[in-house]
């Protein structure tokens, strides 16, 4: 678990808070796993309160863009829209929001978070194939958000491992490189 002293110094959010919010994201990832989805989950937090959660639904929707982040974003946008908030107000709230997600946002999601102007992102394990927050591209730097990795990374990785072990019993043994250590 990456709650080392160094991590605490780097993360402005209190470490205990980070962990409890990440626990909720992991709960979402477990829900995805139970639905035979790639186990990634997230929560969006505004002023210390969870305002939305989401988990991967790419198989169910047959839409490979329905990542946990996009699900949570749509939940909260829909809520704000029904509350009659204007685009300007929504932009202002996003600029105070923090995302906790079990896996580094992919290039698409990192770009979406940049477009929305979210304040900070905390993630679990790195995403060495698609990561948009440092692994492949660094979309959080130019017009982005503060980004911290390695929070409960081992839990996130172990969910992925469970996914492949339960996921497809009929498939030949997949090529499975050793789980990479989460960044930082």
């Amino acid at each position: 678990m990456a709650s080392s002293g160094e991590q605490q110094e780097r993360c402005p959010a209190a470490a205990a808070d980070s962990l409890s919010f990440m626990e909720l994201a992991v709960q979402q990832a477990k829900l995805a796993l139970e639905s035979l989805e790639v186990p990634v989950g997230c929560v969006i937090v505004e002023d210390g309160k969870v305002i939305a959660s989401g988990r991967n639904r790419t198989n169910e929707t047959r839409n490979a863009t329905r990542h946990a982040e996009m699900e949570a974003i749509d939940v909260i946008l829909d809520h704000w829209h029904r509350s009659g908030l204007s685009a300007t107000e929504v932009a202002e709230i996003f600029s105070r929001c923090i995302l906790y997600v079990t896996c580094e946002p992919c290039i698409m999601c990192a770009s979406a978070l940049s477009i929305l102007g979210i304040k900070e992102v905390y993630y679990g394990c790195a995403n060495d194939k698609f990561g948009g927050c440092g692994s492949i591209l660094s979309l959080h730097i130019a017009r982005g958000f503060k980004c911290y990795g390695g929070i409960m990374a081992s839990e996130a990785v172990s969910l992925f491992r469970d996914f492949y072990e339960q996921g497809n019993p009929n498939a030949p043994k997949p090529h499975r490189p050793r789980a990479a250590q989460a960044s930082s």
Partner: peptide, 22 residues
């Protein structure tokens, strides 16, 4: 069949990719 085998073996989010033989 939204959860067909080839879907389940699909991997879009993590750092290790399973082969997708189907």
């Amino acid at each position: 069949s939204g959860r067909s085998e080839d879907m389940v073996s699909e991997m879009d989010c993590a750092q290790y990719s399973a082969g997708s033989p189907a």
